[in-house]
Structure formats: C-alpha cells, structure tokens
Design a binder for these strands. Structure first.
Length: 448
RNA sequence: GGCCCUAUCGUCUAACGGUUAGGACAGCGCUCUUUCAAGGCGCAAAUCCGGGUUCGAUUCCCGGUGGGGUCACCA
C-alpha cells in the first residue's frame, strides 16, 4: 500500500468552529500515525462567499494548534484541471450542457440570483450504489433520486462535488476523513470519480459534533471560533486532546494525551458512530490537566508570552506569585485575572476597614489587637527571609490555642486587605518580614 | 416528508454473548482550610421500547420510537 494522504478541506466562508477542527485533528492524527501526509486545501469555488479573512483565520488557527500541513493549495488554483475534466466528461457524453427553463428564468425575465440559463449536468446511471465506510461499514444509497445533478455552472466553473473529486484524485488522497453530513454526498462523488476513471479513496465519515442544544454547531447558535479559546489562554495541546476525545476513545481509561501520544494511540477503528456534544466544561478540565503538567519554566515562559500578546503589563511580583497562581487557575486567562486582581495588594497600598478585619474573626477588637501583637512579636524572632512554612510553624500553635479564626483571619486581612486570598503564611513570605510587620502594625492601629 | 446515519449515567465514553455495567467531566457530601480556590476521600447517576436468536443479551437480527444529517447553479 502506498503512502497515506489525508486532507482537511474547509471553505473560507465563515469562522470554523470546534467541530470543523475536530475533523482536522482526526485527519492529521491518522496521517501522522501512518507516516503519511496531511494536506490543507481551501475550497474557494464559491467566489461570492469566500473571504480572505476567513482563510487567514483558518491558517492562523491551524498554526496555533500546530497541525502542520505537508501541502497547501486553493481549489481555485486548479481551474485548468477542472475545466479539462469537465470537457472530457462532455466529450464522452457522460455529462451534457443543459438548457435550464426553471420558473425564475421564464417569461424572458432577466437571469436572477446568478442562475444560469445553461449548466452542465451529469448523466446519472441511476442505480443503487454501495460504498464501505471505514467507520460505519457498508452504506447503500439509491442515486436515482439525485437525477442528472449539476456538476458545473459552466465549463470553467465546477461545483463543489465535482471539484472535490478531481482535487482529491489529483492530490492522491487515500483517505477522505470528513463529517457525517457528507454521507449523502458521497454517492454522487463516487459516480463522478467512476466516470472520470479515478481510483476511489477510502471514506471515513466522522460523527458530528453537536452543540449543547443537540444540533449541528453553528455560529448563530453560539458556537465559538476556536481562536476565542486561544485568546482565553487555552493550551493548543489541550484543545487537540479534548477534541480528539469527542468521538474517539483509547482502549484504556487514559484521557490526558500529548499530541505525540495521540498519534501513537489513535485508531480509526475506535471512532464512535454517534454524534457527540461539545462540552466546554470538560475542555476546561483537560486544559487544567495540561497546565499542571507544564514545568515551572514552561509555565512561566508561556504565561509570560500570553500576557505580552494581550498587552498586559508584567507586575513586579510576577515570578514570586507564579506557583500560587498555577494551582488556582485552569487557563492563562484565569491566571492573568488572578495576577491582576488578586495579588495587586502586593504592590499597592492597602485600603480596608475595621469591619472587614473583624468579619471572620468572631472576636472582640481588643482581643484581636492582642493577637496581632503576639504575631508581630513572634515574627520578630524569625530570620529576615522567612518561608511560608517557617511562619506557619511559628504562628500555628498559638493560633490553634487562641482560636484560629480570631488569629488568622485578621492576620490575613491585615496582609492582603481582601476577603479572599491565599493563606496568611504564604502572604507573609510573599511580602517579606519587614512589610508583613508594617502591615500588621497598621492594622493594629486601626483597632485602637 | 423522502433518503441516510445513529441510540450505555446530565455530558464524553468502556464493554467486541456471561462484569456487582467500568472510567472521566459536571453534581452532591465529607475532609483539608481563617477565607476563596486547588487537593484528597466518598455518594448518587445509564444500557430508549417491543419482539426474536441464544442456556445467556448492552452486545446479534427485525420493528417501533427518539436524536441527528441530507435533499442548492453553498461548500
């Protein structure tokens, strides 16, 4: 058997959503699994609706996902080939030029909506046709109801079905991996291929990815362009991992895969037949798992790049706070939010009031003031560059004895000025001995 | 509506005739914890219905029902 060649063939008529890219992921994984080629073809035969910006978005997204193609072209670049093949079919009387006299064209009215008075139709043998789908097995469809379908608007303007068949054959595509919604298109494409004398590719129709409302993903129903996930700081490997999990499952219970692992493990035979629903919540979890697997350096570097690309400023406390932010956030977007909104107290002056100081302490102000004095006293005995653990060892016994909420809540608020924050020991280490004591003093003064 | 595809917890799924129907996300509870997360532990949750075939059906066959797709001079 020759080299495996798959392709991803989107039309640049809108932003592609997760379902489209899931198809790309499978076509890519299958090609790479078999040491084959993955081709990207932009299907731009519809000049009216094809837009450069959509093509750019597709390229940009694929690049972000790092789904590298081995060849790239636009369908429009194959005009001569298409025309040659159309003429060939007409010459062989397998297709013919048809005079159209439909309603919209009658009564000498001007040709409306781009409708032509002449088109090229395929002579349909009108027989039941069976093909074997790599995922679903044999599928039989009677092509009679198709009639003599149109294959081109004119000799130089092929319609999708025709161009696809010619281009797939020209590129030596061995496996056509595409969405379920193309099953009913397959017979007519096979018919065209047979008429042209092409070798048939293997078809593998993937189950569709549906939205939460169980219908085909679409922009209007809230499906988002994949680039939005990039903008929210999702990791490309996590997105690929999650996408691969819709409709595919390995033999074991493993769920978190790198792309390399995916290529090793992927198997067309283990693809689901029924449609799956895109679940953002699970994607979020998968991303967190991938994020946790990053080394500290990788996280720092990638998070830094994310912040920079977003035009966010890098605060002075960036590095110190990284380990804490990492465990609390699932995406870079969330981490950025934490960085900006939850740790700003590290470099800005505090503003909080006595009620907040008392809120979770469940104790009298005088008692709290006493606790704070004790904390300051204890902290004085520690070395200048103390660690969170050292502070905890020093304070915790006292807190436990005197009442943790009465001691630790005010301490935490005094240091962070916030109702929610990391624990007071971490906070102390972050601020350093001197600043910690200063803030505790300030809080105590407020209580007097 | 015609044609085609499809059917296991809410969701993604495991099982390729014999299992207490397994895992994951979400949910709930407990724990850890000054707080919010994260973490650990646990609970609850499914074979669409009806016929066959079989000693035995989630699994094979038929019918129904549900869901989806497709019926363009769009791709």
């Amino acid at each position: 058997m020759g080299k495996v060649v798959t392709r991803f063939a989107p039309s640049p008529t809108g932003f592609l959503h997760a379902g489209n890219y899931r198809t790309a992921v499978f076509a890519y994984l299958f090609a790479k699994k078999n040491s084959g080629d993955f081709i990207l073809r932009i299907e731009d035969t519809d000049k009216e609706r094809s837009k450069k910006e959509f093509e750019e978005n597709i390229l940009e997204t694929l690049e972000w996902l790092n789904l590298k193609h081995d060849a790239f072209y636009r369908q429009s670049e194959h005009k001569e080939l298409h025309e040659q093949e159309i003429k060939k079919l007409i010459a062989e009387d397998k297709a013919y030029i048809s005079k159209e006299e439909g309603e919209g064209l009658a009564q000498g009215a001007p040709v409306a909506q781009g409708k032509r008075s002449e088109v090229i139709r395929f002579r349909n043998p009108k027989k039941p046709l069976t093909f074997t789908d790599a995922i679903r097995g044999p599928i039989t469809i009677d092509t009679s109801d198709l009639g003599d379908f149109i294959i081109a608007r004119s000799v130089s303007e092929p319609v999708f079905h025709f161009a696809v068949v010619v281009d797939d054959a020209a590129a030596g595509i061995t496996h056509v991996i595409r969405g379920d919604d193309h099953i009913s298109n397959t017979p007519r494409q096979i018919l065209i291929g047979q008429a042209l004398g092409y070798a048939m590719p293997i078809y593998a129709h993937l189950p569709l990815v549906l939205g939460p409302d169980r219908t085909k993903l679409s922009k209007r129903r809230g499906a988002r362009a994949l680039t939005e996930y990039r903008d929210e700081g999702y990791l490309p490997e996590a997105v690929i991992n999650y996408l691969a999990l819709i409709g595919w499952h390995p033999e074991n219970d493993k769920e978190i895969f790198s792309v390399t692992e995916l290529i090793e493990t992927f198997d067309l035979a283990r693809i689901q037949k029924s449609a799956g629903i895109f679940d953002e919540v699970k994607l979020h979890w998968v991303n967190h798992e991938h994020s946790k697997r990053l080394t500290d350096d990788e996280f720092k570097e990638q998070f830094f790049a994310y912040l920079t690309s977003r035009g966010e400023s890098i605060p002075s406390y960036f590095e110190e706070v990284l380990p804490i932010i990492r465990e609390r956030s699932a995406t870079f977007g969330e981490a950025a939010h934490e960085l900006k909104n939850e740790f700003d107290f590290l470099e800005h002056a505090l503003s909080y009031d006595v009620p907040l100081l008392l809120k979770g302490a469940k104790a009298e102000p005088s008692e709290i003031a006493k606790h704070i004095s004790k904390i300051i006293e204890t902290l004085q005995t520690l070395r200048d560059r103390f660690s969170a653990q050292e502070v905890k060892d020093a304070i915790f016994p006292y807190a436990t004895e005197a009442g943790r909420s009465a001691v630790l809540w005010p301490m935490r608020v005094a240091l962070s000025g916030k109702e929610k924050s990391p624990d007071p020991f971490v906070l102390s280490a972050l601020l350093g001995k001197q600043e910690t004591i200063e803030r505790l003093n300030a809080a105590q003064n407020m209580l007097k």
